[in-house]
Design a protein around this nucleic acid. Structure first.
Lengths: 237, 237
DNA sequence: TTAAAAGCACAACCAGCGTTGTAATGTCGT
DNA sequence: ACGACATTACAACGCTGGTTGTGCTTTTAA
């Protein structure tokens, strides 16, 4: 899984534009390699267990270089990884949301289940595609009590909250067209949708530590979407 | 002299007063005090951060005594706490399940929502009554990858799995009487019920680290139960 | 009262790890 | 080739913390 993009000598001098603001060559590449390695190791071992040396080895670099890039040490590295990984995943999550549930073009009533199922599958696939990230999120939640409050606040505002907010507004569009019946506030609907489709990897397999077979995941997702539609399907369905 | 902090017996741990029939003095009491303290500290700090000295202070005992009771050290202590706390909570959870959803006496259709709501509230209250335990469970899930596989297996078989199994069989009784429509297998129904009523403390407040106001919790639970009944309410309702 | 057991404070040992300094080595632009 | 800087290996420091041994004190049972 890892080590694919950790080739430090990344080809030619692609990022070698000197003189502006980047002091050296592939500085960004190196930083990304460190962040990716930190994501893997923090996600696997947790904050306390993870050793900076292990991260350095995983990133195919040296401990000293990590401290050169992140003078704040382990703590700043963890915060940087939170920010970096969450932004990446959030963007991809929002992209998949817009692909399958565009508020500008609500689906036909007949296609609602198909689209919701596609969205649920896309989000589920996301958890596999960014497995390292979600393994890390586990530890963010657990370490929340040991992190600065504003850091955690900022993370969840820029990460999961942003997704849920946009999802709720997409649901609002569905509600306006009678495709779903919110039965109250839309935040609830969004939460319940996620609750019904997410137990796949969460409840059943320790946050994805032991992956489930694809067909089993598919069965659980389909079951969740059907239950969601029975609970919130609108008059037009 | 550091004897100023001898304000032990902070809780009801007045252990060694009554030497009745116990072979040694309050051996069980002492063990329970250690286990309870370990539950608190492990739940707050996690396995790696938690220091044995901290647990000893929390238990108003000495580090050495902990090693006398648990020769396996920190690791065995954690495993013992898992077992001890989970058994306690599971029993209480099953008791509340039977109180509000007795398979022998299914409720009237009119009372189904009331009973499910009562059960959901009872389980939610349980998470407050045994807050330390659920704080610990967080860390069990996160540490699963660093614990012996059979230990984790045994824990979830004797703990959450047992509850879900009995809950599913209670739902089977409801299904037999037409009170709910399983739309497939009953394990799904049980999972979805729990998913719809548990986001209270889980999604919204970091696994209960920052408790929500009671009325908010009540609102979320009621919303979850109503959604559940729309999804799984049987013909008789 | 007395002896044994339990509990305790204290100290020591050792391992792991975060962090920093330093000198050697590699790499790139000129 | 040369110089500047990035990168590295290496070592050292200090701190935290798990674990154990050891007498001293307290409690319990006879």
């Amino acid at each position: 899984m890892s080590g694919t993009d950790t080739t430090k000598s990344t080809g030619g001098t692609s990022a070698g534009r000197t003189g502006t603001d980047q002091p050296r060559r592939g500085r960004a590449d190196k930083a990304a390699a460190i962040l990716h390695a930190a994501c893997v190791v923090f996600g696997r071992d947790g904050y306390s267990r993870a050793a900076v040396d292990t991260i350095a080895t995983e990133a195919s670099t040296s401990t000293r270089t990590i401290y050169n890039y992140f003078p704040g040490g382990k703590e700043e590295l963890f915060r940087s990884v939170m920010e970096w990984s969450s932004a990446r995943v959030r963007d991809e999550q929002l992209a998949r949301l817009r692909r399958y549930l565009d508020p500008q073009r609500p689906p036909h009533p007949r296609d609602l289940e198909r689209d919701l199922l596609a969205l649920a599958r896309a989000w589920s696939d996301l958890m596999a595609d960014f497995r390292d990230h979600f393994l890390l999120v586990r530890h963010i939640l657990v370490e929340a009590g040991h992190l600065p409050a504003d850091t955690v606040q900022a993370w969840q505002e820029a990460g999961p909250r942003a997704v849920r907010r946009e999802f709720a507004s997409a649901l609002a569009a569905l509600s306006d067209h009678g495709l779903i019946d919110a039965h109250g506030d839309l935040d609830q609907v969004a939460t319940h949708f996620m609750a019904l489709i997410s137990p796949n990897a969460v409840q059943h397999s320790y946050w994805g530590v032991t992956p489930l077979p694809a067909e089993e995941i598919d069965r659980l997702i389909a079951s969740g979407v059907r239950a969601f539609l029975r609970a919130y399907g609108g008059a037009a369905t």
